[in-house]
Design a protein around this nucleic acid. Structure first.
Lengths: 210, 210
DNA sequence: TTTCTATGAACGAACGCTCGTTCATATATG
DNA sequence: CATATATGAACGAGCGTTCGTTCATAGAAA
């Protein structure tokens, strides 16, 4: 950071990161309209007016936050993206479970901001994300090392099955994390991951035991 | 020195319902902090001050709304509650799917208000709802007409399986309805219900075909 | 019946405060 | 110098809430 020598000097645009961090903290805890620009400036340790050197409006700041997280979320090295690309679906379903858990933990702020957008903006800024959801999963499956079509039952669409598994896991951990319930199934995380994988592989009905 | 009021003749406490209805509309569209008491009074066709004849504070109005919906949601004649009580789990898994769809449609306002609470109040008012979730499903299963333990594979906890099925369906339709994506799996509602039931019964892997 | 009193829903101006945003100004860098 | 960054007072609009008041109605008293 300090590429300049002995003299004290703030890194250029250092306050940008502080503003984004403070806004993320507050928006995720009190929502958009429940957070004031003075709150953000105060937590960031920055003057009120300085926020407007970086963002035209409060909503623009919110949108920038969403964009920043989105960019990070979909990078190939992030847990769920990596798992979707490398997992031999429908083998190793558990791997998708653990990747979902890691992702929800790592990106809980992002997920909460998406909920904020749904609640306070009618999903205005995130609708695009969900509109083409299926094609992302289809691409992941196509690039997958295993031939899913061979191992998935012939009467099941592999893409839909992959989405079902992934979202089941994600929603489970979202409920744990965001709704602040610990073990709402009465199970530890690993046990829940194993249970879901067991059901997804062979079904609930007796006769499908391993 | 007051003005002459234009009083409408109406049933006593008739405005209570109008206030609750307007608040529900607005809170679900703009969130709690994004909705002003003047907005609510205006939409309800009621004076600003009159709101405070019924509710001590704006937050109290919000909490009353949540309580009203909760009471209605858990009545025995509501679709999902009825389905959980009467369905012979794990038979007729589809019935849980259709009941979930009906419930999400009928109670979309309630569900959105729960999200509002999560986003703007840190789940303060709804945490209790989720804390003892498992016991509700366990009770439903106990009162179920079929002996679930006989038909569920021996290595699967029937209560957890019932929760998994129900929440999978609910979360699917919540995403359809609240996030405003139509057919995010690329399937019509009935097809999605059938697909999920198929997977839950016999699993994804080849060899479990019907 | 008529008259009086008590009740509480309804009103909306007003209060004190906070909101998002702007702007004149200051400072430091290059 | 010019440029980028920072400050916080100031602005006007809007906020949740309060409060003095009006008035339709109900019941008691005559």
């Amino acid at each position: 950071m300090a590429k300049n020598g002995a003299h004290k000097k703030a890194a250029p645009r250092a306050n940008l990161g502080r503003i984004l961090g403070a806004a993320s903290d507050l928006f995720t805890r009190q929502g958009f309209h429940g957070t004031s620009t003075r709150d953000i400036a105060g937590l960031a340790g920055v003057s009120l007016g300085n926020i407007y050197n970086y963002f035209g409006t409060k909503e623009e700041l919110f949108v920038s936050l969403l964009a920043k997280y989105e960019e990070e979320y979909f990078r190939p090295d992030q847990p769920l993206i990596k798992a979707l690309a490398s997992t031999a679906f429908p083998d190793h379903i558990e791997a998708l479970g653990f990747a979902s858990r890691e992702t929800v933990k790592k990106f809980s702020a992002y997920i909460l901001l998406i909920y904020v957008d749904v609640v306070e903006f009618g999903a205005k800024h995130v609708a695009r994300l969900f509109a083409n959801m299926r094609s992302g999963y289809a691409a992941a499956l196509k690039a997958s090392p295993a031939k899913a079509s061979l191992k998935v039952a012939r009467d099941i669409d592999p893409v839909a099955a992959l989405m079902m598994v992934t979202w089941n896991y994600s929603n489970y951990f979202i409920m744990e994390k965001l709704f602040k319930v610990k073990g709402h199934y009465g199970l530890a995380d690993n046990e829940a991951v194993k249970l879901f994988a067991r059901v997804f592989k062979k079904g609930i009905l007796a006769g499908g035991e391993k």
